[in-house]
């Protein structure tokens, strides 16, 4: 894995330049849209990605998720997912 793919709690992810996230009522899911394609997101992926606005860092996102879902210890899951999302270009980080 290259340095650019390393995600920490300080990384600030936002949805990739050529992707769009939206809720689709017909599918009861968040989807990622891109040229001629679509990824249907499962619940946790959707909840993480909709918080990738370019404002919150991974630490903030984790804290918000833990609060919203009354859960703990999500940090590594969030980091792992953001790394995957980065490889897929679903998100960019600053």
């Amino acid at each position: 894995m290259t340095a650019a793919m390393t995600v920490t709690t300080a990384s600030v992810p936002k949805i990739g330049r050529h992707f769009r996230i939206q809720w689709e009522e017909a599918q009861k899911a968040y989807v990622l849209l891109y040229p001629e394609g679509m990824v249907k997101l499962n619940q946790s992926a959707g909840e993480i990605l909709k918080r990738c606005t370019g404002e919150a860092n991974v630490g903030d996102i984790t804290a918000d998720l833990e609060k919203t879902f009354n859960a703990q210890g999500l940090q590594q899951d969030v980091i792992n997912f953001v790394e995957l999302a980065l490889q897929q270009k679903w998100v960019e980080t600053t």
């Binding site: 689709e24 017909a26 599918q27 849209l33 001629e36 679509m38």
Partner: peptide, 8 residues
């Protein structure tokens, strides 16, 4: 309304 989301 039926759920189409990609439009070409």
């Amino acid at each position: 309304e039926l759920g189409s989301v990609q439009c070409g």
